[in-house]
Design a protein around this nucleic acid. Structure first.
Lengths: 149, 149
DNA sequence: CAATAGATGATAATTCTTCTCAAATAACAA
DNA sequence: TTGTTATTTGAGAAGAATTATCATCTATTG
């Protein structure tokens, strides 16, 4: 870790108003060096190489903190549990990043159109065979706006 | 439940190759009558009014079965656990519906463009305040195609 | 109607996440 | 620095969500 990196993290904490702790700093650095979409356990395994005594609870707490502060992002903003939908008309989802409520929007109501070269299914980079699109519009529902949360 | 409904469900089972059981039929009917994105517990609560002895395990098994058969759809096809991403460039996700692997696609690489009236944040139907879009391309990754799963 | 493949119900087990709280550490003012 | 206060940490218990197990029961098929 260079002096510049340390400075960067301290500045980041200053801006977001969180305390600079050793665990937090190492977590941040380790995560910056990871690719893809790691789970808390994967992050924990990596950080333990540098701080063997770190607790999994600390990892969870700081992941949430980093997400709240906008330092990193959560991949799926949906409910933590299985959700099923019966609506078979083409639609997408309004997902509230505060209360996680999900509402449907009809495709035309959304006022957004996806333009693609061909028709699904089609091959995408890496040979991925696309079957359908799902669009989430992330933001804040009226209730949470009113609550000013 | 009308005769037509019963007929419809029997046909559906015939086509998808699953057995017609009382529990399955009631589950199907109850779910058809539900709106939004119910959780297994919510479905369970409703079905228990008609079959008080039904088991939560049966609800779970049949939800998965209905999803597999394409009768209903799962709202979020992501991993069951928290995932974080550090990639801060504009990108979207290729989500494999078989193994649930998630890969990034750069926005331009996707060959899809979202056309909207204004700039985010903007107000959508219902007063929802949109902050950003997340697009999932659902399909099958190369590995799962090769495995012919 | 009998044989059998598949489904169900009850509950144990597992996985993932959050909570609790005493001890340790950081921030701040003097 | 040094003391005071607020925050964070670590360890494990607790909780929530989901899956596994298996004996019993039911649907399917001929």
């Amino acid at each position: 870790m260079t002096q510049a990196d340390t400075r960067g993290f301290r500045d980041l904490c200053g801006r977001t108003g969180i305390a600079v702790t050793h665990q937090r700093q190492v977590l941040y650095e380790v995560m910056q060096g990871m690719e893809g979409h790691p789970s808390p356990e994967e992050v924990y395994a990596r950080v333990r190489k540098r701080i063997p005594s770190i607790s999994l609870a600390t990892v969870y707490k700081n992941l949430h903190l980093f997400i709240e502060c906008g330092i990193f992002r959560e991949v799926s903003f949906h409910h933590g549990s299985l959700r099923v939908e019966m609506n078979d008309r083409p639609h997408h989802h309004l997902v509230c990043t505060t209360c996680r409520a999900i509402a449907d929007v009809e495709e035309e109501e959304l006022g957004a159109v996806i333009h693609r070269s061909g028709q699904t299914p089609e091959k995408l980079p890496g040979g991925f065979l696309a079957e359908r699109f799902a669009i989430d519009i992330l933001g804040r529902c009226v209730a949470c706006q009113a609550r000013n949360q």
